[in-house]
Amino acid sequence: MKTIAIIPARGGSKRIPEKNIQIFDGLPLLAHSIIYAQKNKTFIDEIYVSTDNVEIKKIALQFGAKVIDRPASISGDLEPTVSALKHVLEAIDSSDVENVVLLQATNPLRPENLLSEAFEIYNSGSYDSLFTVSRNHQKFGKIIEGKYQPFNYTIGQRSQDLEPLYFENGLLYITKAHLIMSAIVISENAFPLEVEHAFAKVDIDTFEDLDYAKFISAARNDKK
Rank of each mutant, 00 (worst) to 15 (best):
M1N: 11
M1Y: 13
M1A: 09
T3V: 03
I4M: 07
R10M: 12
I16R: 10
P17K: 12
Q22R: 09
P28A: 02
A31F: 05
H32D: 10
Q38L: 04
K39D: 06
N40V: 02
K41Y: 07
I44E: 15
I47G: 10
S50F: 06
D52G: 04
E55I: 15
K57F: 00
K58T: 02
I59S: 10
K66P: 09
R70T: 15
R70P: 02
P71E: 03
P80D: 03
T81K: 13
K86F: 00
E90K: 12
A91V: 01
D93H: 12
D93Y: 03
T106P: 00
P108D: 03
E112W: 06
L114K: 09
L115Y: 02
E120H: 12
S126A: 15
D128T: 12
L130H: 08
F131C: 10
V133L: 14
S134A: 05
N136T: 14
N136Y: 01
F140K: 11
K142L: 11
E145V: 11
Q149N: 08
Y153P: 01
Y153V: 00
Y153Q: 01
T154V: 09
I155D: 06
R158E: 14
E163Q: 15
E163R: 07
P164Q: 15
L165P: 00
Y166P: 04
E168G: 01
N169G: 11
G170T: 04
L172F: 10
Y173W: 13
K176W: 09
K176M: 07
A177S: 13
H178A: 00
S182D: 10
S182T: 05
S182A: 11
I184Y: 01
S187R: 13
N189S: 12
P192L: 01
H197P: 02
A198Q: 07
F199T: 06
A200P: 06
K201T: 13
T206H: 05
E208Q: 11
D209H: 10
D209A: 04
D209Q: 00
L210N: 02
L210G: 03
Y212F: 06
A213L: 08
A213E: 03
K214L: 11
S217Y: 07
A218G: 06
A219V: 06
A219L: 07
N221W: 03
D222C: 13
K223A: 08
K223F: 08
